[in-house]
């Protein structure tokens, strides 16, 4: 059990680091997906530990939401690319104070 969770958390942290260091928006997105998948692994592992399927249902919902999120996210990336000719997250810094 512990090893599954440890793996899940390792993957999650690796995804988080990826989000922080990568600048290509698409790769950042992939890292987010990795983090989602890592949580799914934890859900499934917990489902087995507790002996019910609620964890699996949660993982299922996470997948659905991830699918929707990817759709929208990629559409945003495409439209940003279309107007700014770049996919670097550093170039979209209009929030700068």
């Amino acid at each position: 059990m512990t090893e599954y969770l440890t793996l899940s958390m390792l993957l999650f942290s690796i995804g988080a680091i990826g989000v922080l260091v990568r600048r290509n928006a698409i790769i950042v997105f992939m890292c987010v997906e990795l983090m989602l998948n890592a949580t799914n692994l934890a859900f499934v592992a917990f489902a087995r530990q507790h002996g019910n399927l609620d964890g699996q249902v949660a993982a299922f919902f996470v997948m659905v939401v991830a699918a929707a999120e990817v759709t929208i996210g990629l559409a945003i990336i495409v439209s940003i690319y279309r107007t700014r000719r770049t996919t670097s997250v550093d170039d979209a810094n209009l929030l700068k104070a």
């Binding site: 988080a16 922080l20 600048r23 997250v89 550093d90 810094n93 929030l95 700068k96 104070a97």
Partner: peptide
């Protein structure tokens, strides 16, 4: 306080983490 507001989404993400 303004200086951390770089506009870089990765900086914000670092703060979130």
């Amino acid at each position: 306080l303004r200086k951390p507001q770089t506009g870089f989404v990765r900086s914000y993400a670092l703060m979130v983490l």
